[in-house]
């Protein structure tokens, strides 16, 4: 995508953002549709460009993938490679996920108790 088209897109999106403060009307509906169309077009263009699904020459099939698949049992002792990844190689992320759950509980309970 060209630089000029990016700038034009950004300006258009920003302009339609400002028009959101208009009361609900046909004009606003049209602007929303135009904006969604632009975003949709950009996303489709991105997906069309992505590497083929499941092809072996894809960028994610690099040394990390090799290591995870072939050495996981040796490194962690887990037969299930996914368990090896989420609870050993990237265990800190899992700690984060557990914390997200805890945060959600804390948020929900504090709100329920407060009101």
């Amino acid at each position: 995508m060209e630089v000029n088209s990016l700038t034009a897109m950004a300006i258009l999106v920003l302009a339609s953002y400002i028009f959101f403060y208009l009361p609900a009307s046909r004009l606003r509906g049209v602007l929303v549709l135009i904006m969604l169309g632009i975003i949709g077009y950009a996303l489709v263009a991105t997906v069309a460009e992505m590497p083929t699904f499941g092809a072996s020459a894809n960028p994610p099939h690099n040394e990390v993938y090799q290591r995870y698949l072939h050495q996981a049992v040796e490194d962690t002792g887990a037969i299930n490679a996914i368990a090896a990844i989420i609870t050993d190689y990237r265990a800190f992320d899992t700690l984060g996920e557990v914390t997200v759950l805890f945060t959600a509980i804390a948020a929900a309970l504090s709100n329920l108790k407060a009101h």
Binding site: D93, G96, V100, T103, A106, A107, S110, A114
Partner: peptide
């Protein structure tokens, strides 16, 4: 992951 934690907890300390 951390962004998500901070987003939820920031919402909750407003609505408390």
């Amino acid at each position: 992951v951390f962004v998500e934690i901070s987003a939820i907890s920031a919402c909750a300390i407003i609505s408390i």
